[in-house]
Design a protein around this nucleic acid. Structure first.
Lengths: 214, 214
DNA sequence: TGTACATCAGTGAACGCGCGTTCACTGATGTAC
DNA sequence: TGTACATCAGTGAACGCGCGTTCACTGATGTAC
């Protein structure tokens, strides 16, 4: 598979779109074989370009994966934001929609999701990447804030903790039941989406948010 | 680092313990660099043995990782079983202990946990491995059964679903907050253990299991 | 207890391969005047 | 509009390296008698 600008073959000495083509090729390979499953040279070959060309755009293979992850987090945050939809029509429904958006992203973009959460090397020191991941978590955090605000209190749980619970459950389900299988995967008696929705409802019921009242 | 039988150097033509030494060396390398971060040759070198020697014990590198995962699942199941402790003193406390055992395993054996859940290649067709992973899930499943049995009903939730929720939350927290960091990791305002305990309590409260009554 | 022999575990040399990285280069693009 | 020049993106050849895998081998162990 080639990822050149001008179909079918490149007509110019310059590629014109190499950076994007490399990212697209990496996504395909990560989806097929995981973040560890390709080399810098292979991705160049897939883009129809010499093995030295990618160095014009990325310091090394890891930098390419980091960029895949960063772009993934950006789309991920946008998806979660759309699902949350400012808490409409009500917090419980909006959180369910947000959860659905979460799994939908993991399903549509397994390669991005893997680069984001199992890159195979530490991704901590990339400021732009951290910012993108914080934006995504920010959506969940705001959803938890809004949900907690409904709580009658006293005994209102800390919103940060609720956000982490929501995220852990969504990530747990995505990571166990969506994407390339691991040995841990079980057969599911229901879709991951239904499993997450039920889990969120059980959880939120305890918080005084009755899922049936909407 | 060498993993030979007779310290400090091997005195015999035969290693005597090579299989175990290869597994031990793989565990160290996986802990440091992830399941993708070592080669078959490197693990042989670490064991102080020629690059051809590992082939006497494992078909290839993947078979070695699969064995690491299988042994990991065995110890994992035993740990969960000990935490669950047949539901004593009561199901809620026992499930909390089981959750603590879950995270404790991920903390003590990050390399095994990674091999089990992010091997980097499909591990589906290894029957012994599948059996070991089913044994581990079986503990969670039995814990969910016992917890659901306490539910006053009607509206008692399916135990299988509850088991999957418990597992997803524990795995989500382990995978996000324990082990080698990914870009997704947030700073935690509390320990993973406390986060999981709180999450389990909130969840189980909805099931009619009051965590404060024990 | 001793000996012959089969089995087994590890050797070490060899191979072809693809990778990461560098380098001086070259062709295309954009811009100043 | 034309020309000169700087900048930029991709070339292709080269390198050393470690890997995976094979092979005939050898030394140690265990067992039959």
């Amino acid at each position: 598979m080639r990822f050149t600008n001008s179909p079918p073959g490149r007509d110019s000495y310059h590629h014109g779109n190499l950076r994007e083509a490399l990212i697209a090729a990496a996504l395909v390979m990560i989806a097929e074989r995981g973040p560890a499953g390709f080399s810098f040279a292979e991705v160049a070959r897939a883009a129809g370009v010499s093995p030295a060309a990618p160095y014009r755009h990325f310091r090394d293979r890891n930098a390419l994966i980091a960029e895949v992850a960063r772009l993934g987090f950006e789309r991920f945050a946008a998806d979660l934001e759309a699902g949350w939809n400012d808490g409409r029509p009500d917090p419980v429904t909006a959180i369910e929609n947000c959860g659905r958006a979460y799994l939908s992203f993991a399903r549509r973009e397994p390669a991005s999701y893997a680069a984001m959460f199992e890159p195979g090397f530490p991704l901590e020191d990339d400021a732009a990447l951290l910012r993108a991941s914080e934006a995504a978590f920010g959506v969940i955090r705001r959803a938890a804030d809004a949900a907690c605000a409904v709580h009658p209190g006293p005994g209102r749980p800390p919103a940060m903790m609720v956000a982490l619970h929501l995220w852990a459950m969504a990530h747990g389900i995505a990571s166990l039941f969506i994407g390339r299988p691991s040995a841990g995967r079980r057969r599911l008696p229901m879709s991951p989406e239904d499993l997450l929705e039920a889990g969120l409802l059980v959880y939120m019921q305890s918080l005084g948010l009755n899922g049936t009242q909407r």
